[in-house]
Amino acid sequence: MQPISGQIISGEFDHVHNHFSVQKVKNLSTLSVLNEQQISMLYRYLKLHENEEDGQIVTLYDQIPVMLTQFETKLLLRDLERVQQLYKQC
């Protein structure tokens, strides 16, 4: 497992099973396992909406809303780019 500590998300990338385990979003602890397609879909959505002044809301466990400012959305995009690079190395 390779630890990833980004500006918005933190977790571990598992090269054996080819997935990313999100352990923290902003200051909230979580445990969500995302595959390459899920990371890609989230990245594309945020990329389309990165310049919205009101920011974005992501949910943890489909229940806990987490507000991201426009700046935090851009930081999350950078974090996701790092994770996407790990998928390309597999």
Rank of each mutant, 00 (worst) to 15 (best):
Y87W: 08
S40M: 04
R82D: 10
H17W: 11
S21E: 07
F20I: 01
Q56A: 10
H49R: 10
K47P: 01
V22G: 05
K74P: 04
L86V: 05
V33E: 10
V33T: 08
N18I: 09
T69W: 02
E81G: 00
K88M: 11
V66I: 14
Y61H: 14
T69E: 02
G55C: 11
K26F: 03
F71C: 14
Y87D: 02
N51Q: 15
E72S: 09
S21P: 05
K47L: 14
K47G: 07
L77E: 02
R78N: 10
M41R: 09
P65F: 03
Q84T: 01
R78I: 06
E81N: 04
Q70M: 15
N27H: 13
T30N: 05
Q84N: 04
Q23G: 12
V33L: 08
H17A: 11
V58K: 06
L46H: 02
K88P: 05
I39P: 00
Q84C: 00
V58A: 06
L42M: 12
K26N: 09
D62A: 13
G55I: 10
Q70H: 10
S29V: 08
D62G: 14
S29G: 09
T69N: 04
D54H: 13
Q84I: 03
N27C: 10
L60V: 14
Y61N: 15
Q84V: 00
K88N: 14
N18L: 11
I57C: 11
T59C: 12
L68C: 04
L31W: 11
L75A: 07
E53G: 07
N27I: 07
K26H: 07
L42R: 03
S32E: 15
L76K: 03
S40G: 05
E50I: 06
V33N: 12
M67A: 14
L34K: 00
D62R: 14
Y43F: 13
S40A: 08
M67F: 15
N35G: 09
L42P: 06
L80H: 04
Y87E: 00
L31G: 10
K47T: 15
V22H: 06
D79N: 05
D54C: 13
I64T: 10
G55E: 05
V33R: 15
Q23N: 12
D54M: 15
L48P: 03
Q63F: 07
E52W: 06
Q23M: 13
S21F: 08
L80F: 01
V16L: 13
E72P: 13
I57H: 05
